[in-house]
């Protein structure tokens, strides 16, 4: 059985407060200080942070590398678009409800198949299943619009009437940013509780040694299945929150490179820490956007960064900082 070095430690919520509170306050205050464009980018980053958080429950905590998380993200997003298309609903809460249900159903179906396997078999299965969804979105032109995608207009938030004359950019950078931020905090909190609960501990036990975990009495497949569900739903929520930011859904978000991006951001931030995937998502989002703007060779640039990351910073950004921090502390206290 493979063992991953254990650095995910149980921490009481109190211990996290000294850094969590300033970060939260910063996220609250930032839109006042930065321009609307950067705020919208940050909102993208937070949304992807939720997806990466969900993804990392499988990778970092359960030891399962999914290469098909675009599926749940896409299901969340397409649920929103289809709800609008067929029911003409514009309430974000109903969108989210639909996305949660849809991603729950799809991750239950896919999870049922996938959790029977681990390692490369698990990765390939998740990849294959996500490609099935992609090809459905791609080919069912009358329903999904094919590669043209489906447009979704500005939703109403919390049932408040829509200011139709309003500026869409300001809407995204103010109202919608705080809406996303609210969900982001809720998701982080829920995930924190999950990974520090007995259930979360059991997942980590399964990750570290499957055989031992089984002997302790953990029903491995069931635990993996539940982790898969939670992971899928988190990613689905992210997909739904992403739609108003982008304005439309396209099969791109169901395609395998998008799954790759979720893996990339998680590795970038560090999958052995709780906050790593979140930071990775925010940083990746800035990185990709500036790379695309900076050079037409942006793919090469991102590729080079990934290679550097794997070779030089296997712990990711947060993982490396966490490792360096005690060393620095020692040096400065001397």
């Amino acid at each position: 059985m493979s063992t991953v070095p254990l650095t995910l430690q149980a921490r009481s919520p109190m211990k996290a407060l000294p850094w969590a509170v300033p970060v939260a306050l910063l996220l609250f205050a930032l839109p006042q200080a930065i321009d609307p464009y950067k705020t919208i980018l940050l909102a993208y980053g937070l949304v992807m942070g939720i997806a990466a958080l969900g993804f990392n429950l499988l990778l970092g905590y359960t030891g399962l590398l999914s290469f098909g998380h675009s599926a749940y993200f896409g299901v969340g997003a397409y649920a929103v678009a289809l709800i609008f298309k067929y029911f003409h609903v514009r309430s974000m809460e109903l969108f989210l409800l639909g996305a949660i249900l849809a991603s729950l159903v799809v991750s239950a179906l896919f999870g049922f198949v996938c959790v029977r396997y681990t390692r490369i078999f698990f990765g390939i299965l998740t990849l294959a299943l996500s490609q099935v969804l992609w090809s459905l979105a791609f080919k069912f032109y009358p329903i999904t619009g094919g590669t043209d995608g489906l447009r979704v207009p500005t939703p109403t938030l919390l049932g408040l009437p829509l200011d139709t004359a309003g500026d869409k950019i300001l809407f995204l950078a103010r109202n919608y940013y705080y809406y996303v931020l609210g969900f982001f905090f809720a998701c982080v909190l829920v995930m924190w509780v999950i990974v520090n609960s007995p259930f979360g501990k059991a997942l980590q036990a399964i990750r570290d040694n499957e055989t031992r975990a089984e002997f302790v009495g953990i029903h491995i497949r069931r635990y993996r299945f539940v982790a898969f569900l939670v992971s899928g739903v988190f990613t689905g929520i992210a997909g739904a929150l992403w739609v108003p930011l982008n304005g439309l859904t396209t099969p791109d978000i169901l395609y395998w490179p998008f799954s790759g991006e979720i893996v990339f951001m998680t590795v970038l931030g560090g999958f052995r820490t709780f906050s790593g995937p979140i930071f990775g998502a925010v940083v990746f989002n800035y990185l990709k956007t500036s790379a695309v703007g900076f050079t037409t060779y942006w793919q090469a640039l991102l590729g080079a960064i990934l290679v550097f990351l794997v070779l030089a910073l296997p712990g990711g950004i947060v993982g490396t900082v966490v490792q360096l921090f005690p060393m620095l502390k020692k040096r400065f206290s001397r």
């Binding site: 321009d35 609307p36 464009y37 950067k38 919208i40 980018l41 993208y44 590669t147 995608g149 950019i169 982008n246 304005g247 439309l248 396209t250 791109d252 978000i253 990709k288 956007t289 695309v292 703007g293 037409t296 942006w298």
Partner: peptide, 23 residues
């Protein structure tokens, strides 16, 4: 100013916003 359309539809929307709001 150049921008690459090959980044994908979703990235293109972002890039258009960046060009207007940032550049």
């Amino acid at each position: 100013l150049k921008a690459d359309e090959a980044a994908g539809t979703d990235a293109n929307v972002k890039e258009m916003r960046r060009l207007k709001l940032s550049e």
